[in-house]
Design a protein around this nucleic acid. Structure first.
Length: 247
DNA sequence: AACGCCTCCAACCGCAGGATG
DNA sequence: CCATCCTGCGGTTGGAGGCGT
């Protein structure tokens, strides 16, 4: 009965592209009442849209800090690498790309990168521009099921917070000030990570790179440099694969 | 100019999982 | 437990616009 009613409502729901005035209504509503309870949003806002449609529109288009436009080379590289590691885990990949949505990453992959990689002849022939990439490529060629399984477990248990607010990110000056200390963490044990985490600031690996990828984990430090993720990953993976913490 | 094909991306769909009563 | 609701995810689709003929 209730389902029939709901289905009827869904059938009546407006579909297709959103108009600017609809965007405005949704934006105003969410800014006033906050996110969540999307069914109520569609009912109370006066929008003749389904809750899912409202949620999607907000998440993929109207939400603050959405970055639109061309992907940078760094973002593209990161997507390729993450996809190699994680497969079609778009939300996880998007979580490493500040301001990008899973839908955007997925579309970008399907329209640009997949094609590009196919054109280049072979997936494993991805050209990496640094040593870590090459190592990862070699690693990838030696992948076995167990490795992939453990990697997925790791990624699943370290969900990134996709949209870190600006005040959650360490100021770059703070990074510079703590550069030496932070660098030590890359070769230290997990208690150091923990210290930084408990300190409340997360952590940023400094370096001479200019990658702008941001990583924010709900229970782990965050990293703003692309290759730092790989380093982090390598350290974690080492501990997972060998059953002990990195030293 | 008109047509058809192709590309890209916004939006939809179905399913799974968590929360709640 | 079970049913229901809500949310999030990945796969897929449809349409607008670009491009070639």
């Amino acid at each position: 009965m209730e389902d029939n009613k709901r289905e009827k409502n869904n059938n009546q729901a407006k579909r297709g592209l959103w108009k600017p005035e609809e965007d405005l209504i949704l934006k105003n509503y969410v800014e006033t009442h906050g996110e969540g309870n999307w069914a109520a949003v569609s009912e109370n806002s006066g929008l003749m849209r389904g809750g899912k449609s409202c949620r999607l529109r907000w998440k993929n288009y109207l939400r603050p800090n959405i970055k639109r436009g061309c992907m940078s080379q760094e973002e593209e590289d990161l997507i390729i690498r993450m996809h190699k590691l994680l497969g079609n885990r778009w939300s996880l990949i998007a979580g490493r790309l500040p301001g990008r949505t899973d839908n955007e990453v997925k579309n970008y992959w399907n329209t640009h990168l997949n094609k590009k990689l196919c054109r280049s002849g072979k997936r494993k022939g991805i050209e990496f521009d640094d040593e870590s990439g090459r190592q990862e490529q070699e690693q990838g060629e030696n992948d076995d099921d167990e490795y992939n399984k453990k990697l997925r477990q790791f990624c699943d248990s370290h969900q990134p917070i996709c949209n870190a607010t600006e005040d959650q990110l360490l100021d770059i000056n703070e990074v510079e000030e703590n550069k030496e200390k932070i660098m030590r963490y890359s070769t230290s044990d997990h208690s150091s990570w923990k210290y930084e985490m408990e300190r409340g600031g997360g952590m940023v690996f400094p370096g001479d790179y200019n990658h702008d990828a941001t990583f924010v984990f709900d229970d782990e430090p965050f990293v703003t440099y692309l290759d730092s993720f790989l380093l982090f990953e390598a350290l974690e993976m080492q501990s997972i694969m060998h059953g002990h913490s990195t030293t």
